Deep mutational scan, measured.
Amino acid sequence: DEVEIEDFQYDEDSETYFYPCPCGDNFSITKEDLENGEDVATCPSCSLIIKVIYD
Rank of each mutant, 00 (worst) to 15 (best):
D1H: 01
D1I: 14
D1W: 03
D1R: 15
E2N: 15
E2Q: 15
E2M: 15
E2I: 15
E2T: 15
E2A: 11
V3M: 13
V3K: 02
E4A: 07
E4L: 04
E4I: 15
E4Y: 09
E4Q: 04
E4G: 10
I5P: 01
I5K: 02
I5N: 01
I5E: 00
I5Y: 07
I5W: 03
I5T: 01
I5G: 00
E6P: 11
E6Q: 04
E6W: 01
E6D: 15
E6S: 07
E6H: 03
E6Y: 10
E6N: 15
D7K: 15
D7L: 13
F8E: 00
F8W: 02
F8D: 00
F8I: 03
F8H: 00
F8V: 01
F8Q: 00
F8Y: 03
Q9L: 08
Q9V: 06
Q9E: 12
Q9C: 04
Q9A: 02
Y10S: 07
Y10L: 15
Y10I: 11
Y10R: 12
Y10P: 01
Y10N: 03
D11Y: 09
D11G: 09
D11T: 07
D11L: 14
D13T: 08
D13I: 13
D13A: 09
D13N: 15
D13F: 09
D13Y: 10
D13E: 12
D13G: 14
D13Q: 13
S14A: 09
S14V: 14
S14T: 12
E15L: 04
E15R: 14
E15T: 08
E15A: 15
E15K: 13
E15G: 11
T16C: 04
T16W: 06
T16N: 14
T16Y: 13
T16F: 08
Y17R: 03
Y17E: 00
Y17Q: 02
Y17T: 01
Y17D: 00
Y17K: 00
Y17C: 05
Y17W: 14
Y17V: 01
F18M: 06
F18C: 06
F18E: 08
F18N: 13
F18Q: 12
F18L: 11
F18S: 09
Y19W: 03
Y19L: 09
Y19T: 08
Y19M: 09
Y19H: 11
Y19G: 04
Y19P: 00
P20Q: 02
P20E: 10
P20F: 07
P20G: 05
P20Y: 04
P20T: 09
P20M: 03
P20V: 07
C21R: 00
C21G: 00
C21Y: 00
C21F: 00
P22K: 12
P22L: 09
P22W: 03
P22G: 07
P22A: 12
C23P: 00
C23Q: 05
C23G: 11
C23V: 01
G24K: 10
G24M: 03
G24E: 14
G24W: 02
G24R: 08
G24N: 15
G24F: 02
G24L: 06
D25L: 09
D25Q: 10
D25H: 08
D25A: 11
D25Y: 07
D25C: 05
D25N: 07
D25M: 13
D25G: 13
D25K: 07
N26K: 12
N26S: 13
N26E: 05
N26H: 15
N26A: 11
N26L: 05
N26D: 09
F27S: 14
F27L: 02
F27T: 14
F27P: 03
F27V: 10
F27I: 00
S28E: 14
S28Y: 08
S28C: 07
S28P: 12
S28A: 07
S28N: 15
S28W: 08
S28F: 12
I29A: 12
I29V: 07
I29S: 05
I29M: 06
I29H: 09
I29R: 10
I29T: 05
I29E: 03
I29C: 03
T30A: 01
K31M: 02
K31S: 03
K31A: 05
K31R: 02
K31Y: 05
K31W: 02
K31Q: 03
E32P: 06
E32F: 05
E32R: 09
E32Q: 12
E32D: 02
E32H: 15
E32C: 11
E32S: 08
D33Q: 13
D33F: 13
D33S: 14
D33P: 05
D33H: 03
L34W: 09
L34H: 14
L34A: 13
L34Y: 14
L34V: 12
L34Q: 08
L34K: 12
L34S: 08
L34M: 12
E35I: 14
E35P: 03
E35H: 03
E35M: 10
E35K: 13
E35C: 02
N36K: 13
N36H: 12
N36T: 10
N36P: 07
G37R: 09
G37K: 14
G37M: 08
E38V: 04
E38S: 08
E38C: 07
E38Q: 12
E38L: 06
D39W: 15
D39H: 07
D39K: 15
D39P: 13
D39N: 06
D39Y: 04
D39L: 13
D39V: 08
D39T: 08
D39M: 14
V40D: 09
V40Y: 10
V40W: 14
V40M: 01
V40N: 02
A41R: 06
A41H: 06
A41Y: 02
A41G: 05
A41I: 01
T42N: 08
T42L: 03
T42W: 10
T42Q: 14
T42V: 06
T42D: 12
T42K: 13
C43M: 00
C43H: 01
C43K: 00
C43R: 00
C43T: 00
P44V: 02
P44W: 04
P44H: 09
P44G: 11
P44A: 07
P44C: 02
S45M: 02
S45A: 10
S45T: 11
S45Y: 05
S45I: 06
C46P: 00
C46L: 00
C46M: 00
C46S: 03
C46D: 06
C46Y: 00
C46F: 00
C46V: 00
S47H: 12
S47N: 12
S47A: 14
S47E: 06
S47Q: 14
L48E: 13
L48P: 04
L48C: 04
L48Q: 11
L48S: 14
L48Y: 02
L48R: 11
L48T: 08
L48K: 13
I49N: 10
I49L: 11
I49H: 11
I49M: 08
I49C: 05
I49G: 08
I49S: 10
I49R: 11
I50Y: 02
I50D: 01
I50M: 11
I50S: 10
I50G: 02
I50C: 07
K51T: 13
K51Y: 08
K51L: 06
K51Q: 07
K51P: 11
K51M: 10
V52L: 04
V52C: 10
V52P: 07
V52K: 01
V52F: 12
V52W: 01
V52Y: 03
I53K: 12
I53W: 02
I53F: 06
I53R: 08
I53Q: 12
I53V: 08
Y54P: 09
Y54Q: 14
Y54W: 08
Y54A: 09
Y54I: 09
Y54C: 11
Y54G: 11
Y54F: 11
D55L: 02
D55A: 11
D55Q: 14
D55V: 05
D55M: 02
